[in-house]
Design a protein around this nucleic acid. Sequence first.
DNA 1: GTTGAAACTTAGTTTCC
DNA 2: GGAAACTAAGTTTCAAC
Lengths: 158, 158
Amino acid sequence: MGALRDTLDLRILDMLQHDALLTADALAQRLPLSASAIARRIRRLRDSGAITGDVAVLSEEIGPFLSAVVQVQMDRHALAAVEALRRRLGASPHVQLFLDVSGAFDLLLLVTVRDMAAFNEFADTMLGSDPVVRRYETSFVKRRRKFSLALPLDIDAG
Amino acid sequence: MGALRDTLDLRILDMLQHDALLTADALAQRLPLSASAIARRIRRLRDSGAITGDVAVLSEEIGPFLSAVVQVQMDRHALAAVEALRRRLGASPHVQLFLDVSGAFDLLLLVTVRDMAAFNEFADTMLGSDPVVRRYETSFVKRRRKFSLALPLDIDAG
DNA sequence: GTTGAAACTTAGTTTCC
DNA sequence: GGAAACTAAGTTTCAAC
């Protein structure tokens, strides 16, 4: 997927990962390239997979929501059972972030639910009842200060 | 911001937070509503702030990248210094996730950089040299299994 | 092979009912 | 809210480099 040809592609990606509604016309005012060339590049970046998709970001105020960071330590015995747990976690709409991490814990989750009752329900059914889960620790999110998918693009280094 | 009027708004939001490029026409095929009514609702949801923005999601393969979860314990003495640290962290393009959390640590960060050298540079300049930071613990991300901004919308409950 | 301008097509917006 | 007219943005074509 070597679809990034030059620093202009990087600059286009960087602007779109902050605002995907920018038109090719608007981008053309900030880049030394015509709108039609920019539109072509955006299409190529999408088709090549450099842009995997576009998502609408919703306000937390449509909530209320309760979020928690859950660190999970697993037993490694049954590989199939581990895979099953992973599938369930990845498929849950309540799991926003799901990472394999190094250190004392194996998994780190960001779980978002409606309220504490829903969190307990989640923890009990997804984690507490699973024999693969040795233990887990929960930190509740007091405030979400930044939550961005934007990757840091070193524009110079292109 | 009571812009959500019914379950149709929720269903529109849920589809757009997974694919913001869906056209009103495409949504109309899945919802009992005409394309023009859907387009009107989408505009209203954007204007009211229920949709705060739209972002392009980039492939990790444009990297390579190194990500780490950093948990930070702070000294609470100098409030102004705490605020300054928060501003710097929030403004950094390397900080994708920045949460205030309950428990033994105060802050949880997801930091994404180019490589280990860049991570050390980040940790030294942003955390190691800051008197507000009492200590921090780093877990490196071995695998990113899910990273989504999508909020769980209970469609029924509208 | 990529650019920029113009023709063309598609999607969003506005008007009217 | 729905349908049609209108406007704006994306796509394709084509000549030039």
